[in-house]
């Protein structure tokens, strides 16, 4: 059994008095692809930002790689985030060209010569099937291409933990599957621990080792992809199989 790389203990988070996460506890083993599914407004994106140390929970503890993020100050968090990469739902690409976007984490994290940065960016772009696009502006590219650039930026510093927030939102089924394949290939190549949240259950279950389901801020299921498909928990059964009748 691999050690838990991400661990949440009784995490509570609220916005303007509205509870978003209500006592979430989960563990993600090292080198595992953990899919977090759930209906809209279940708290998935908030949970991912809590794991990244971008949001502080009101209660509970978050551990990433044995470091407790919840007790850290901002400067310590910045240090801890060096081992975490994140793809954002709406890309969050900067107003720079593709090369500068992907090179950005390397420039901030390490003092590398420009030649090495150039090589690593070219390798990443080849990996996400966008070679030779260094000079293009992301705003002029398609949604699928922007996601790929986001994946390249999230993985260029070779983080131990990679967080994907809705990597296929707004993409067609073919592009979605290509993105999932990319996420899986990347994980196999780097042995990183991956947490991916998605509303696209059928797609994300094809790559997930383990699955958790959030509903109204609570973790109502935690198990393997196969267990999720055969679960008798009403919320899980309805969501995984896309049924219109049920508690959701």
């Amino acid at each position: 059994m691999l050690r838990a790389l991400i661990r949440l203990d009784d995490v509570h988070k609220e916005f303007l008095g509205t509870p978003v996460l209500q006592g979430v506890s989960l563990t993600v083993p090292a080198q595992c692809i953990y899919a977090l599914i759930g209906p809209g407004a279940a708290g998935k994106s908030v949970l991912l930002k809590v794991v990244a140390g971008l949001l502080r929970p009101e209660r509970g503890k978050v551990f990433v790689n044995d470091a407790e993020l919840t007790s850290m100050r901002e400067l310590e968090l910045a240090e801890a985030r060096k081992s975490i990469g994140m793809l954002f739902q709406n890309y969050a690409l900067f107003d720079k060209n593709v090369y500068e976007n992907i090179a950005f984490p390397l420039r901030r994290l390490y003092d590398l010569p420009e030649e090495e940065i150039r090589e690593r960016v070219a390798e990443r772009l080849a990996r996400v099937a966008l070679p030779g696009t260094e000079e293009r502006i992301p705003q002029s590219m398609s949604g699928g291409q922007k996601k790929r650039i986001g994946v390249a930026r999230a993985t260029i510093a070779k983080p131990e933990v990679i967080l994907y927030d809705e990597p296929t939102a707004g993409l067609d089924p073919v592009t979605s599957q290509k993105i999932y394949d990319l996420v899986q290939e990347e994980q196999r190549a780097t042995k990183a621990t991956v947490m991916v949240i998605s509303s696209d259950v059928s797609g994300v279950l094809t790559i997930a080792d383990r699955v958790g389901m959030l509903h109204q801020g609570r973790l109502v299921f935690d198990g393997t992809a196969e267990e999720a498909k055969t679960s008798t928990i009403p919320e899980v059964n309805q969501f995984v199989h896309g049924l219109t009748e049920g508690p959701l």
Partner: peptide
């Protein structure tokens, strides 16, 4: 647009 969070994830305060 989450760009500020993306900065923080890239060790850029």
């Amino acid at each position: 647009t989450d760009q500020v969070d993306a900065l923080r994830m890239c060790a850029a305060d």
